[in-house]
């Protein structure tokens, strides 16, 4: 049972015409937007639509595709119990605006995305590796990073 808002994509389409495309998903309303629209759209979702919890920020690596990465935000309205998924596509050396201004809780998941995928966030207060040592080479969750193996230098 879920309480997802079925009209949210319609309301967003009125406010942001041509700002996004909706994506079919089995579990919750999903939309794919652009980097330029991201901050204004997130601001609107948090303040007007009351999506006050950003549950997760994560990255999916679709290796041969261009742009290569997909950044996924899971938003949650804690009063209506509605969920929403916002996605953008990011290329390998492109910068993404950080969401830490809107949700301070995006701090660590964005650092994790930087650590394990090498996504660069603009405006992040402390963009350093979080799990791996600072001198680690490469970003392990990328699809071209091997699962096992010995380094040969």
């Amino acid at each position: 049972m879920n309480h997802n808002d079925p009209d949210i994509l319609g309301r967003l389409a009125e406010r942001f015409p041509q700002g996004f495309t909706s994506v079919q998903a089995v579990d919750q309303p999903t939309l794919l937007t652009t980097r330029d629209q991201l901050v204004t759209m997130m601001q609107y979702l948090r303040d007007q639509e009351q999506y006050r919890l950003c549950l997760d920020v994560l990255v999916v690596d679709y290796l041969p595709d261009r742009p290569r990465f997909e950044l996924v935000y899971h938003l949650y309205n804690p009063w209506k119990h509605a969920r929403l998924r916002v996605k953008i596509r990011v290329g390998i050396n492109e910068k993404v605006p950080s969401m830490t201004e809107l949700w301070p809780g995006c701090n660590w998941p964005e650092r994790e995305a930087f650590d394990l995928f090498g996504i660069q966030f603009e405006g992040h207060p402390n963009l350093r590796r979080i799990y791996l040592p600072d001198d680690w080479d490469g970003h392990p969750l990328r699809k071209d990073y091997p699962l096992t193996g010995t380094r040969v230098d």
């Binding site: 804690p78 119990h81 949700w103």
Partner: peptide
């Protein structure tokens, strides 16, 4: 602050918000 920092569970319920997925989105 708890909502902004993505805090959930008992830590959030101790701030007066009765958010429990067992009740709100029963599975």
């Amino acid at each position: 602050d708890a909502l902004g920092l993505s805090v959930t569970g008992p830590n959030l319920r101790a701030t007066g918000l009765p958010l429990d997925l067992r009740k709100d989105e029963p599975y």
